[in-house]
């Protein structure tokens, strides 16, 4: 899973959001590292909807334009959790490293 995809899914873990809110939330969660362009976001949303990781949950008309909200599916939630555990395990390799030194004594 790419980092961008990870943060899009992570943005949806607290509930459904529409496009602009996903961009904002992904930026917050990544402390500003992920700045999604709208074109990139909608390509990702189309892919994630196609693979069943997210789904459209609501559609409202705001300022005369349709605005849909997306939410994580159970599959998407599980995929996000799996990936987060992989990242955590990878992080532990560094953060919980035990320093072992072999002392070589002169004969």
């Amino acid at each position: 899973m790419r980092e961008t995809t990870y943060f899009i899914l992570a943005a949806l873990q607290d509930g459904p959001l529409h496009g602009y809110a996903i961009i904002q939330r992904a930026s917050e969660l990544s402390t500003g590292r992920i700045r999604l362009a709208t074109g990139t976001l909608y390509t990702a949303l189309e892919r994630l909807t196609g693979t069943g990781l997210i789904r459209v949950v609501d559609e409202q008309i705001v300022n005369g334009r349709a605005r849909r909200s997306y939410e994580l599916t159970p599959t998407g939630g599980a995929a996000l959790k799996d990936h987060a555990e992989q990242l955590a395990a990878a992080a532990r390799v560094v953060t919980e490293r035990r320093v072992t030194r072999t002392v070589v004594r002169p004969a």
């Binding site: 602009y20 074109g39 334009r65």
Partner: peptide, 30 residues
Amino acid sequence: RYPREEILDTVLQVNGAFRVREATALIAGA
């Protein structure tokens, strides 16, 4: 098949002005 109105709505919410980065991403996405 893409939600064109919604994409336009989002891009206008994100940007007050026309930006090359957004324009490039929209062209690439399309």
